[in-house]
Design a protein around this nucleic acid. Sequence first.
DNA 1: GGTTTTAAGTTGCAAAATGCAACCTAAAAT
DNA 2: ATTTTAGGTTGCATTTTGCAACTTAAAACC
Lengths: 169, 169
Amino acid sequence: MTQNNVFKCNCPLARVTEVIGEPWTLMVLREAFLGTRHFNAFERELGIARNVLSVRLKKLVDLDLLDRVRSESDKRVVEYRLTDASRDLLPVLVGLAQWSGKWLCDGRSATRFIERETGREIPRIAVRGMDGRELEAREVAMAPGPDADPDLFARFERAAAVAADVPRG
Amino acid sequence: MTQNNVFKCNCPLARVTEVIGEPWTLMVLREAFLGTRHFNAFERELGIARNVLSVRLKKLVDLDLLDRVRSESDKRVVEYRLTDASRDLLPVLVGLAQWSGKWLCDGRSATRFIERETGREIPRIAVRGMDGRELEAREVAMAPGPDADPDLFARFERAAAVAADVPRG
DNA sequence: GGTTTTAAGTTGCAAAATGCAACCTAAAAT
DNA sequence: ATTTTAGGTTGCATTTTGCAACTTAAAACC
């Protein structure tokens, strides 16, 4: 079975895997956040193969994560621009960067996210409840949503049996 | 150039790509969060090929994102357990699920994260400044960190030129 | 106006990763 | 003693990636 048809149901983590769960896509989005707009610039900055870049950009455009706009002033030029959807991914990128900096880069990362105005590091992204209080892992659970089918309900019932165990490993 | 040697420097987003930027890994971690512990269970729940699963689990163990523990009571059994590092990934998983639910699943996702006690949906993960105030995309920037090399500084200077433009696309 | 350069791709081919089924080994259950 | 179970590995076909060369259309140059 290929990854993309695991839970064709609307499982959000399964679907997000289509996007960032394949090589290069996350880096392409990062470049876009850094201001890269052009095909050749993505290639140069990342060192990605042109055919793969082509496939990735097509998919991102398809998913409305990038807008493909042909320049008016120079008809050769194409601009790939962030959309509302991809801009909305910023908190996740910050969270990923913070997590990776801490656990994969030994706390000494080469890049970090800062508050533009003050230059201070962004505090750690946290899960908060409705009251704004920070939640610990054990206080959070996954549950079936409005679009869950019976299979998925069963899946979560199995999971619930061990769920209490998860936060402490 | 292969993805893994882009910025061998400690760029956290480049490095996190080694983990979740390849097929299946994110789903394996999700399963672990749902309480899956055994090789055969990962295979059954995900439908992943056994050889690929084997490679993924090895890598996750290697990166200290899973502990591989042989059961005392039944020596055939191996348990893959979340570690401090992987448990710490929860805010990112919640953020990804929320984002995907909104932008990829049309707002009608089959699964969601809830507050265990009340059953209420987790509010949207946000980027906050030191004062706790929610920051907008335009107030956030990437910057070179302690371990950045000259190339990376140059990279960010180029980026700074267009940065002001990014938050609005 | 003819030639060269530039931007954004596509194409062909070798190497690597994935999907699938079958096989293997050690320990437990019968 | 044998069968089953858990956790893999192996071999092979298919797909994806990496790399270099080629293409096409629109500037830019002379």
